[in-house]
């Protein structure tokens, strides 16, 4: 027996509301993060990720309030990412009830943010979130992008992930910008390259479209599989993913 492969739904939230429509039956309020978190918690999700896409920093308080309400009812780990720029942001999100904090763009601009946060709050709560795009000019063939894939960071993705792990990140959330939204499956080469480069757990993200997409990601080296729309639109259930992974010989909860 060993640690189970985690299946993780990701919810996009804007000013405390879930956006990009979630389509379950019998939902009172499809935008209510607390109701959706409860629904996922009861349906076997191993963790939950909130990606805060709130543009205005003046709305941060609504984010904290949303996390507080969710954490009060959810007894599985909660990761919050998006717009985390300072150690003080990390502190406030943890205090609100988040267990792990995803650091993305701001970490590339200021790598000390990762070291400082890991030192203060522990390696286990810092997730380095990387939006990766294939680029032949980058040494590994993969480049780290910023601002949700809109900008090139000029950094090689593998080099950056290795540095972030050395600085104390406890996990890597690997978003393939090439696969994201295609529903053609995860970027297996990317997962495999990162798995060989670092010892921290790898969460595969981007590209899940059908049930048979999940097991290959795990075979390539993912310790967890994350998806958004296929879960939200009820195309695939968490339990179906787990059954499929179990059939392929993986351990699941």
């Amino acid at each position: 027996m060993s640690v189970a492969i985690r299946v993780i739904p990701c919810l996009d939230v804007d000013a405390g509301r879930v956006v990009k429509g979630v389509n379950f039956e019998n939902l009172n309020d499809a935008g209510d993060p607390v109701e959706l978190a409860r629904r996922y918690g009861n349906s076997g999700a191993d963790e939950l990720v909130f990606l805060d896409i709130t543009a205005s920093s003046s709305n941060r308080e609504t984010t904290y309030e949303m996390i507080r309400k969710t954490a009060d009812e959810l007894f599985i780990p909660l990761t919050v990412g998006g717009g985390v720029r300072s150690v003080s942001d990390v502190d406030q999100l943890l205090r609100a009830g988040a267990d792990k904090i995803g650091i993305n763009t701001a970490g590339i601009a200021n790598p000390e943010l990762i070291s400082d946060s890991a030192k203060r709050f522990g390696d286990q709560c810092i997730v380095i979130s990387v939006d990766v795009r294939r680029n032949q000019d980058s040494p590994s063939g993969f480049e780290a992008t910023t601002h949700g894939g809109r900008n090139s960071s000029g950094r090689d993705a593998l080099e950056w992930i290795i540095e972030a792990a050395e600085r104390g990140a406890g996990e890597v959330l690997l978003n393939s910008m090439d696969a994201d939204g295609t529903k053609n499956g995860y970027d297996l080469e990317l997962i495999s390259a990162v798995r060989s480069a670092v010892e921290i757990p790898v969460i595969a993200s981007g590209g899940a479209g059908k049930l048979s997409d999940f097991a290959p990601a795990v075979k390539a080296g993912a310790n967890a599989v994350l998806a958004a729309s296929v879960f939200h639109f009820n195309e695939i259930s968490i339990q179906e993913v787990k059954d499929e992974l179990a059939r392929s010989g993986q351990e699941v909860r």
């Binding site: 060993s2 640690v3 390696d123 406890g170 996990e171 010892e199 921290i200 757990p201 310790n223 967890a224």
Partner: peptide
């Protein structure tokens, strides 16, 4: 162990 931290649900 090959992957650290030990993170997730175990028996």
């Amino acid at each position: 162990a090959p992957v650290l931290p030990h993170m997730g649900w175990n028996n």
